[in-house]
Design a binder for these strands. Structure first.
Lengths: 150, 150
DNA sequence: TATTGTTATACTCTATAACTATA
DNA sequence: TATAGTTATAGAGTATAACAATA
């Protein structure tokens, strides 16, 4: 199958290709542990934000409350996190459990191995460069100078 | 929401973030034209490979025959491509139609604009560098020297 | 009134399996 | 036997809408 020149020169397409390659390997590695990239991200966000509620978690993951529910249900069912009483009677406080810590420690190593495999064709400097550039992806920040009048 | 240090240092996660940002903008731009990134990729692959069959297309897109069917159905229903008799009685030959050419020309400009917006925080050199690095993502190539005996 | 969690429902994309008609 | 297209069905992930309880 020949490739299309226009297609190859679309940044979004190259990003998609690279993402697909990486996510496929990550999924393969996580699957035996009953995790997906999204679940793992949620787990790590809960660890970094103990006591957060589901709505905030969903916001951070760019999914809505309803979808965040399912995700949290899955993590709770596996005993990785639990819902505790929150700051008022209608919010939950999400907390990681010991079992979650253990799982996390194990899969982090696997993920780093995956990263290393997927960046095997880059030098260390190139890998650092890729990290830095990926963080720069996105629209220009709106400038808000101190003497702005808006 | 605080970020998690381990998470931020996983290449796959940074890739996912960057990809999500780009794909969201691309989808927004393509939607009024009834296209999605996947449909557009298929369209461009058919253009570059006139007469290809659905199975080959699916392979190039990393989806199976059945899923490729739906994709082709969608493109054909919109009059962008058509199925012609293939090299034998059980294969189709996919061809882009004039309407497909027109659509493609229009959205390519929009996509380049999107790319430019999403890489606005990079210099030109950085953008070229990102392209090159994304192409290097993936496992090390298996070496097959001429004097290999396997 | 607005917000949080929840439930029910639906949509999209993908996969698997089975069928058909060719090869 | 194997392959290309097709169809039916199912699963994952997401969204919307509506409801109850609470703020």
């Amino acid at each position: 199958m020949k490739q299309d020149d226009d297609l190859e020169n679309i940044l979004g397409y190259q990003m998609q290709r690279a993402f697909q390659i990486m996510t496929e390997d990550a999924r393969r590695v996580l699957e035996p542990h009953g995790l997906t990239p999204a679940k793992l991200t949620a787990l790590m966000l809960i660890r970094a934000n103990p006591g957060c509620d589901q709505t905030a978690l969903g916001l951070a993951l760019s999914i809505n409350r309803s979808s965040a529910m399912k995700l949290v249900n899955g993590l709770a069912a596996r005993g990785l996190i639990e819902r505790r009483p929150g700051r008022n009677l209608r919010t939950n406080a999400l907390h990681m459990l010991a079992h979650g810590e253990e799982q996390l420690a194990g899969v982090l190593t696997l993920l780093h191995d995956s990263d290393r495999r997927m960046s095997a064709r880059m030098t260390d400097a190139e890998q650092r460069s890729l990290f830095a550039l990926l963080r720069k992806v996105g629209p220009a920040r709106t400038r808000r100078p101190k003497d702005s009048t808006d």
